[in-house]
Amino acid sequence: MTSAAATLQKPKRRFKLTKRVFSYPYVLFMLLFVVIPLVMILVNAFLDADNNLTLSNFADFFTDKSSLIILANSLLVGVITTAICLIIGYPLAYILSKMPSGRVLVLFYVLPMWVNFLIRTLATKAIFIAIDVPLGMGTVIFGMVYNYLPFMILPLHTTLSSIDRSYIEAAQDLGADSSTVFLKTVLPLSVSGIISGITMVFIPTISTFAISQLLSNGKIFLFGDSIQMKFEQGLYGVGSIMSLVMLAFVLISNFIINRASRKSGLSIGRSLW
């Protein structure tokens, strides 16, 4: 009986090209380039210069005032950049979503992303110097907004243009003039787009490096820059701790954003996250 069952089962054991097989290369890729580096950072965080197990890296970071100020600065720049991107991006995305040729025009806003961001930032810096704008916080934020605006416009445009016209008509039908239609239907229905826009701008800005250094002549030092420096100086332990802190912030902000989006009424429209 058992042998019969075994022979019946045997053909199943053979290799089959199922859907699952296609995921193997990606799983391998994730392991190599995401999981292993993360593990390495985690291990590094608990090792001192002589590869002994230690917690001193934590103490070093959390007692170093300048590191904490840099962290606070980074969060501030992130918040300001995100706010400016939203203020510029929302009306723009709204107008574009109403235009029949909006899709093509969005491309023009995304187009600069095809140029390497270092080259763009260096060019921006050259322009600022040429027109005698003092490099500092203002220019750093300008550079950030310039770099991350497309990431705000894209999800907003996607969400806004996928709002069913019938909701707008229903609101008009029930007596809403155009400003009420916007406040009571379009805005709440585009919350998911706002949230993915914020996620896509805020998280990269707090961890970015180079933009701040270049556009402030090294005067403004953000968290990303200081991580880069720690690794350059061979302080792998502290660098790893800082990376973990960064990661924690990304996870926390993701969590808050997700909570907010669930509360606001879930899967309205399409969003990128």
Partner: peptide
């Protein structure tokens, strides 16, 4: 006359209930 000033109301084909 724009729709919001008309004294008519519509029941839409796909209801168009506000999801939020």
């Amino acid at each position: 006359l724009p729709p919001h000033l008309r004294r008519v109301n519509t029941v839409f084909q796909k209801y168009a209930l506000f999801p939020h």
